[in-house]
Nucleic acid binder design. Sequence first.
DNA 1: GCATGGTACGAACGGTCGTTCTATTTGTCA
DNA 2: TGACAAATAGAACGACCGTTCGTACCATGC
Lengths: 196, 196
Amino acid sequence: MGKGEDTRNLILEAAVAQASEFGFESLTIGSLAERTGLSKSGLFAHFGSREELQVAAIEAAAARFTEMVFAPALKAPRGLPRIRALFDGWLDWTVRSGLGHGCPMQAAAIEFDDRPGAVRDAVVWHYERLERELARAVELAMGQGHLRPNLDVAQFVFDMLGVIFAYYHGSRLMKRDVSAARARAAFERLVAAATP
Amino acid sequence: MGKGEDTRNLILEAAVAQASEFGFESLTIGSLAERTGLSKSGLFAHFGSREELQVAAIEAAAARFTEMVFAPALKAPRGLPRIRALFDGWLDWTVRSGLGHGCPMQAAAIEFDDRPGAVRDAVVWHYERLERELARAVELAMGQGHLRPNLDVAQFVFDMLGVIFAYYHGSRLMKRDVSAARARAAFERLVAAATP
DNA sequence: GCATGGTACGAACGGTCGTTCTATTTGTCA
DNA sequence: TGACAAATAGAACGACCGTTCGTACCATGC
């Protein structure tokens, strides 16, 4: 495909980085044009509107998450090891992605949770997919006998999300180095309560 | 004090409501002027800058949280009942406050976690206070014998925050009615693991 | 009843916003 | 290489941004 595709990907890379630091509301045509060295109209031509640009940035962030967290976890043996790999990868995927600032998906989730529209729909869609995949990994672990068979899967996913969110809060806002250790401790207690 | 104080409070009430729905980045002089029926310059005169307005809105939101969550919980007997009161009040304080949209403090936490400045400082300050008060309540419960004496207080606070954040995620973004029940179940498991 | 000072208004500033046009450059393929 | 399409630039638009300034209102204390 043409060179337009490359430019588009370059723009989205810059967009995800900027959203990680300043949120999706900061994704303006002008600031992204300056960041990428394009003209406003040249950049705009790749997307029909600002909203489409934001949606594309969500998709790009989700793709990066899949690549950085899910794909590596699939290499771990199914069951508890894979769940651990998911959790570990989830904790620092933004840093390993070179984003170095907050998780863009969570930023989008907060920014758009009360704003109906295409962006919100995209965020919800990706979180549903994420939680579904997570639930599937838990069920696999139950099938392997790593987790007890009467485990409430949705509750386990809920609890695991809580640990991640508390970690983001502690590390990104409060800048506490101890947050990673706290998150791992919480996760281990969660697993211990779910083993047969 | 004069009528200026009243107007200022009216502005801040509108600001907190708007931040609950659209975030603190949406707090523009123009939109708030229209919302309150004031002129732009008339509203602006109450604050030296937009940033000061945002800080004042943070303070107002924090004051509302104290009034709606902490103050009622202090009426509960110290120990576990008070912690339960804090948790219950925390879950739906925005609804009882007439905000009806997301928790403004969490929105501010995400929006400003990577943006140094007065707003971020205010957010961090209030979360530190909140977690300190929470830790004090836990210590009181340990003193009462409701929680085991070797409990890791900071870890308990971390876990409790996680439950709250997971609840906000489930109820505000994913619009799942079951989130409150999941949050209560998670909290009860947390308490059960912390009792002597 | 009148001065005084806090309170609000209206107009204007330079800048940025998203978006729309029309050119112009650039890349691709016969 | 030449033709044609894709990709980018440039200028302009109306709207809104935060902020400043000069002026009017209006409540209060004498």
